[in-house]
Amino acid sequence: MSTTVLTVDDSRAMRDMLRHSLIAAGFRVLQAEDGVHGLEVLETETPDVIVTDINMPRMDGFGFIEAVRRDETRRAMPVLVLTTEVDVEKKNRARAAGATGWIVKPFDPVKLVDAIRRVAA
């Protein structure tokens, strides 16, 4: 049974890239365009890991992670932040919101897959 990963990113290119890398690594991939969409997906799907961007329209990554954590059943769901943000303050905010890990773009697909395996296992 493959591990299911939900990727939340407003960039189509980034989503395609993630999908391509993750499917190649044997994951099942769900996609969402932003936080609001991510929560919609979570209503019907229960991914093993969420990989989310920070800067997104409608609902950004912080809001999304907080919303995920507010749901009791999703408190153990690993959420990795994939972002170009390098600001310490942003990183702390992500951690406070309940993120499991922080990955700085540009990402290395191998390392990303590795990171997902670590939190999913």
Binding site: A76, L80, R95, A99, T100, I103, P106, D108, K111
Partner: peptide
Amino acid sequence: FAPGTVITGDNGFKFEFFPPAEDEPEAE
């Protein structure tokens, strides 16, 4: 997994685990 583990790739990739939140229910 150990909080604060940092994996650094040679293309600027950086991956870091946050320590779990204090009240994170880990049991399940």
